[in-house]
Design a protein around this nucleic acid. Sequence first.
DNA 1: GTCTATAGATAGATAGAC
DNA 2: GTCTATCTATCTATAGAC
Lengths: 183, 183
Amino acid sequence: MARPALARRKVLEAYIDLLCTDGVGSATMEATAARAGVSKGGLLYHFASKESLAQAVIDFSEEVIQEDLRLMDEAPEGAATYYVRTSATVNGEFDRQFIAVQRLAQDGNEAAIAHLGTVQQRWYEMLTKHLGDERIANMVMLIGEGLYTHCAMPGGWYQKNLEGQLGELLELIPELKKLGRDN
Amino acid sequence: MARPALARRKVLEAYIDLLCTDGVGSATMEATAARAGVSKGGLLYHFASKESLAQAVIDFSEEVIQEDLRLMDEAPEGAATYYVRTSATVNGEFDRQFIAVQRLAQDGNEAAIAHLGTVQQRWYEMLTKHLGDERIANMVMLIGEGLYTHCAMPGGWYQKNLEGQLGELLELIPELKKLGRDN
DNA sequence: GTCTATAGATAGATAGAC
DNA sequence: GTCTATCTATCTATAGAC
């Protein structure tokens, strides 16, 4: 860990980039090498197989998620609002690797599916802790998931029609919290 | 239209099935032919290219969505509850082809992205009509989108942890409607 | 209308030079 | 540590028999 080779980092970023923008079908090792500016052989020195490339995305995601959970726990705006807000920031540091893992999972990668499961479990526990109601936590988590799905679609409907409504959506999140306590 | 060849229908079903369960990477024409019980040549008689196979999924989706919108508009439980409830029924008639289109869109298929856009626009308008508040419609749509994403993940977290909570989630949807009118 | 055989392209992965 | 060259498998698509 500590300070990985620069080329290795560039290859990983390129692979994540391709997964997010073009999907698993286009994220080949050849295309990844080209985008990273290295040859296929150069890529294979750092990642011996496509599976190890996928695992690197998952490992990177685990690092990022731990930091994300810490920020979420301490967010002044509240954990739920933080969660929804960051779910909609497509180009953020956190989101790209998360979308990449999601794409891998949707393509049947078992390690990615298992990792996503632990991430969702931790988000759910964090939201329940802060919202005090499992049903509301469930709902907020689905809203975030929906935002991810929308935002991860290049040229999709959300980016053209709902971008301006994010502020209004965020204002409603604290209202949801009240809804939970009333019942 | 009217009554398409049985083999053609079987091939289309097989392709949708593979897209949903194994993802775009595994949904090859060869695998599709095998699952449909025909040869590669037999498949290519009905669908001259992979693109035309994808287009057939989109066309089928358009048929199904029109019926879905009609049922949504007339649902006794309310359009929003109907929308969320059917978003969570993975094995339903409506959902499989929708998830398949989503997978195609996430792999960069332009026709699928455009179709998804029109579907989401119509759902949004229907929800706004019934909820009377665009912000709440927005939120409900994201909840449904989140449910789709969760449910479409074979072996994913939702199917193990939230299935029993669907009833509670559905109970909260009418509460959201009140939330909209209060503000 | 469905099949076999096969062409042509591209994927993932190996070997070895530098 | 990065490259070129190459192997093998698999994919999409075509040609033509039945």
